[in-house]
Amino acid sequence: MATAATLPTTSAVPRQISRKARRAAWTRRILIGLAFLLTALFLLVPVAVIFQQAFARGVPTFWANITHPETLHAIWLTVLVALIVVPINAFFGLCAAWAIAKFQFRGKKLLIALIELPFSISPIVAGVAYLMVYGSRGIFGPWLEEHGLQVMFALPGIVLVTLFVTCPFIARQVLVLMQSQGVDEEEASLSLGAGGFKTFLYVTLPNLKWALIYGVILCNARAMGEYGAVSVVSGQIRGQTNTLPLQVDLLYHDYNAAGAFAAASVLAVLALITLAVKTIVEIRSRTE
């Protein structure tokens, strides 16, 4: 009896600790479980639904939908827009980052704010803004019409709004890294007699590799996926000015769900590839 009575008091402290540890372990399990459950329901189920709907009527139907001339043209147009937009924004991003990171001048903050402005502007507003400049009733509209130049409801308009919405992506990634690297390496290279362009190509660019790749992936994903701004300026002419996101919309409203989801699945695959490459780049840049 005596031993039984003394037992609890001697083990009181360890038991309290183990109770605390057990509670922490349970908290951990519940939080991780909740995180997985909510992410699966909220983020992954919608993506899974795209593929389920795309293949609901079998692989041959899926293939027929993907290879439909209008959808193929939309894929081609989307790739073309990205091929034009991404290099231009990469060039702009490198120039802007070089000017801002390597030199001191007034108004630097304002310039950065201006570069990031498109992130804050609703895509629809961006589309309307371009319409007010290049549309038939826009500022340059009459002049463009006189000279027979079609900007809105044609490829140039789609390219312009896509440039607008994706302009900050590469510049921002490259700028942050360039600012942290300073100018020491470039000055060393220049004092050793290398020219400005050579220094940029062999010293600056290799240092920026991962930030540049990262920015290009994000810029490309947005360029291929932009919907709101493009829908305002494209005119949505079937088989002519429909990009892939617009084609998804068009097929969906034609009650062609299988076709819409087949087209959407192409963009979903692009998104998954983007995520994979992004993760790899993050791991590689951290280990290097």
């Binding site: 995180a35 983020l43 919608p46 996926g225 919309d249 998104a271």
Partner: peptide, 30 residues
């Protein structure tokens, strides 16, 4: 899980729109 957090940024908004509609429709998965 960390990579999946960027899915909403990577997925084109129109695709997210049709996917959410299909998932939350009265006969959808959710």
């Amino acid at each position: 899980l960390d990579a999946v957090m960027d899915l909403p940024f990577a997925l084109p908004t129109a695709v997210a729109g049709v996917a959410l509609t299909a998932a939350f429709a009265s006969n959808g998965w959710l």
